[in-house]
Each structure stands twice: as C-alpha cells, then as structure tokens.
C-alpha cells in the first residue's frame, strides 16, 4: 500500500479525478464542436468520391460500348465502300471491253465496205478499159484499112497501139 502512496507508482485519487473531469470536458467540447461536423464532412466526402468513381465507371463502360458500336459501323461502311468500288470497277471494265469490241467491229465493217468499193471501182475501170480497147482496136483497124502500109509501118503501128493500151491499163 505504501508503494502507491509515495514515489513513482503513486496513484493520486485527486489527479485521477482531474483526469476524468478533463477528459469528459474534452469529450463534450470536441464531440459537439469538432468530431461531429468533422466525421460527417469526411463521410460525405467519402460518399461523394465513391459516387463519382461509380459514375466514372459507368460512363467508361458506356463509352466502351459506344466505341464498339462505332467500330462495327465503321467496318460495315468500309466493307460497303470496298464492295461498291469493286462493283464499279467491274462495270467499268465490262463497259470498256464492250466499247473496244464495238469499235473493232465498226472498223472491220468500214474496212469491208472500203474493200468492196475498191473492188467495184476496179471492175468498173476494167469494163471501161475493155470498151476503150475495143474502140482503139476499131480505130487501129480503120487506120490499117485506110492506109497502105508497108510491113514495117504496120508493125510500128501495132506496137504503138499496144503501148497505148498498156499505158491505159
């Protein structure tokens, strides 16, 4: 008993009572003036932060969904465009081939016609030449008949006529 009445291990009831009084006063003052508003404010902030994080999470998920949708749409559009281009190219190719074919056919036809016309013209010319030859021969025969010719003259005349004919031909 002596040890708690004196020295280091002394328990002074008065000091104990003061401790209790001081702590109760501290509790009363701080509970009302500090801890209550403080804990409430901190809780409210924690709640707000939690809400914000949840919102952000939701927004992110939504954004991801939208992004995926956009990607699919973009892919579709790209595929469509590619198909469209391929179709157009095929059509253009076909059109080109058609045009070339038609042009070839036209050229062929023109050439045929030209050739036909040439041959017609040639036939006509040959007919005219034949008529001329007949006339010339008639002329020559008339000349031979009209003139008394020596053999040399005769020969020269024939040759001359023949040359005429050749030049005409």
């Amino acid at each position: 008993m002596e040890v708690i009445q004196e020295g280091l291990l002394k328990v002074e009831p008065g000091l104990l009572l003061w401790t209790i009084i001081t702590f109760i006063v501290l509790l009363l003052i701080l509970w009302k003036a500090a801890w209550k508003p403080l804990v409430e404010a901190l809780d409210a902030r924690a709640e707000k932060v939690r809400g914000d994080i949840e919102n952000a999470d939701r927004s992110r998920q939504e954004a991801e969904k939208l992004l995926a949708q956009h990607k699919i749409m973009m892919d579709n559009a790209r595929n469509e465009a590619a198909k469209f281009i391929a179709d157009s190219r095929a059509e253009a190719e076909k059109l080109k081939n058609d045009i070339i074919e038609k042009a070839g056919a036209d050229a062929e036809m023109l050439a045929d016609r030209a050739r036909k016309e040439i041959s017609l013209a040639k036939d006509r010319a040959l007919g005219e030449i034949k008529a001329e030859i007949v006339n010339l021969s008639t002329d020559i025969a008339a000349k031979i008949i009209n003139k008394n010719l020596n053999p040399n003259d005769q020969k020269a005349l024939v040759e001359e006529t023949l040359n005429k004919v050749r030049t005409v031909q």
Binding site: W18, T19, T22, V25, L26, I29, L30, A33, A34, W35, P37, L38, E40, A41, L42
Partner: peptide, 20 residues
C-alpha cells in the same frame, strides 16, 4: 492535462470548420 485539452480544442475546432 489542461494544456492537452486546450491544444486539442485549438487544433480540431477550427479544423472541423475548415473541412466542412
């Protein structure tokens, strides 16, 4: 003890106001 009480009040009462 009183000084500790006083310091607690001095620190935390303005602190609560600031945080709020």
């Amino acid at each position: 003890l009183w000084l500790a009480l006083f310091l607690c009040a001095l620190v935390f009462i303005p602190l609560a106001r600031k945080i709020k």
